[in-house]
Amino acid sequence: MRKRKSQAEFVKWFGPVLDALRELGNTGKPKEVCEKIAEKENLTEDFLDQTLKSGTNRFENQVAWARQYLIWEGLLDSSVRGTWKLTERGRNTNLDYAAAHKLFLKWVEINQKARKTKTKEEIIEDQEEDSPETIEIPAEANLLSVLKSLSPKGFENICKELLREHNFEKVEVTGKSHDGGIDGYGVLEINPFVSFKVIFQCKRYEGSVSRSQVGDFRNSMLGRAEKGIILTTGTFTKEAEKEANREGAPPIELVDGNKLVQMFEKVQLGLKPKTVYEIDLNYFEKFKE
């Protein structure tokens, strides 16, 4: 039985990819980046000619995976097809092997949570043998996994960004640990004459938010805002939903994991749209005769 890998060979190219792009003026074609790395690292022809079982060039595939991890980390911009480009962070980031390996482990864990049928070792093995384009990760599952992997402070701050993208103004995170469950506040302008002060709470949950938690949040809201929002990566119990909409009480807007994903998708916050083509077999039938 073949021993599964606990690390990937392509990690060693994280730093060289950044270095190569800097030398190329912060942008470059894949072939240019590979050639620059080969030149700087004095790679032999024998090494550069190695192929995977699929026939794909091994070195070029490893560099492609290095690029993918750097994109996930926000060091490369993938918005222009066929061109690799450093982001502002990427231009100012240098990675030695230790830093690259730490980055690698972070994203392997995120991917493993998104692809629950795969172990970390199996994911690494897949990446060693296949190109980034052939391995798909469900966007919804991956987004929630990424959000759950954030620190509590990080989740609060990304919720702040999300509300801003949805036209909230003056959005701030309180940064206080004992503020009655209030994590931040903002203003939502309905029209030039009407606006609401809103407070929000962020719960990076696996499970469900309970009725009592909604009630406690409302009590903290009284006298401080006209409306409240609870955002969670989890769900809400039926009793929590009833409490949020209880007649005669200030309304609480509930945003569960599914709605949270939809909100991110609507404004494309941290997400890039991808076009997928399906073959129209009927079109090709007439050319078989």
Rank of each mutant, 00 (worst) to 15 (best):
E243A: 11
E88S: 01
R164Q: 15
V146E: 12
P152T: 09
C34L: 14
A66M: 04
G55M: 14
L48C: 06
M263V: 05
E45C: 10
L260G: 04
L48S: 03
G215S: 12
A38F: 10
E129V: 08
M221H: 07
D256R: 01
E133R: 02
K106T: 15
T237H: 01
F284A: 11
D49K: 15
R22G: 08
F193Q: 13
I123E: 00
I71V: 15
I230F: 11
L75R: 06
Y97F: 15
N258C: 06
T134G: 08
R91W: 04
E239M: 05
E172C: 09
E165P: 07
L18V: 07
E32F: 02
L76N: 02
D130R: 00
N282Q: 09
E169R: 15
K153M: 11
N245Y: 09
T117Y: 02
E35G: 10
S210W: 08
R22L: 03
H101M: 14
D256S: 06
T117W: 08
L76E: 06
L21K: 03
S212L: 04
G28I: 03
E285G: 12
A114Q: 00
L52K: 03
I135W: 01
A64C: 10
K227C: 13
R164E: 15
P16V: 09
E289L: 14
R81H: 11
D216M: 08
L163G: 13
Y97I: 14
F155C: 08
V108A: 05
V194N: 10
G234W: 10
L43E: 07
D96G: 02
R22V: 01
T56I: 03
S79Y: 09
A8Y: 01
D19W: 08
L269M: 14
G180N: 07
K148H: 05
A100C: 04
A99W: 01
S210R: 03
E136Y: 14
G15M: 02
